[in-house]
Amino acid sequence: MPTVLEQQIHAPAPPRKWRVDLVVQRLALVGTIIGIWWIASLQMPHYILPGPLRVWQSLRTISANGDLWHNLAITLGRVAAGFLLATAIGLPLGIVLGANKRLGEFFEPIIPVMNTISSAIWAIFAIIWFGVSNATTIFVVFMTAMPLIITNVWQGTRTVNADFIELAHTLRMPHHKVMWKIYLPTILPYFFSGARLAFGFGWRVSLVAETLGSSSGVGYRLRQAADLIQTDQVFAWTITLVVMMAALEMGALRPLENHLFRWKREAESF
């Protein structure tokens, strides 16, 4: 879990061009890893380190019988619910704390404290309060994601340009329009990098929560597979998660960010 200081706000990278040599490099990397994995697996019993082929077969089995999609959908739904809840509360709260100096100063110590509480602790509390249910996982995702979103939005409100506010003032623009047209666009890049971080963490902690307090979802199936020493299935679930996160990042988040913040490109030099 990164501290507040480590949460760097980064401008979106310029869109990468498809480079053939880069694609070859990436494929070679994947090939090397699978190769090492395969060689290592030859020396080990399959319940310690299953080989790539065995994992592939197991992946096909869980995907063919629907197990994979069913549990993936459940976990994704819980992460999305916790994340949306964290956004709905964290975004306005961050704006209020950033816009009101006195409130901000009063509540400032809370965020780092919340960031130091491990997700496992939230999971234990969640089980006490919500038992084995959807709410447990949603709560843990929420408690992890919300401080990240608040922190970033809060930082964003500090960068609102007073010159723009004065401009709106000379135009006699009503206050709610100033919020909508100046505050929100200024905060958006900060919110976005916070939300991205929050979604990534939310996804990871959801598995912790599901192993402890759930009877469905990827986390639950992971623990079950481990308990039954179906190591090939543990690998299969893990690979599924990695592939899905990468697809989300490259297929949705990065293009969206590049589009939303296209005005930022090269603007850094000013």
């Binding site: 010159d163 401009l167 000379t170 666009p185």
Partner: peptide, 14 residues
């Protein structure tokens, strides 16, 4: 009554 500032104050995202 319009006011034009010393800086252009263009909103960078527009």
């Amino acid at each position: 009554v319009s006011y034009m500032f010393q800086e252009d104050r263009l909103l960078p995202w527009r």
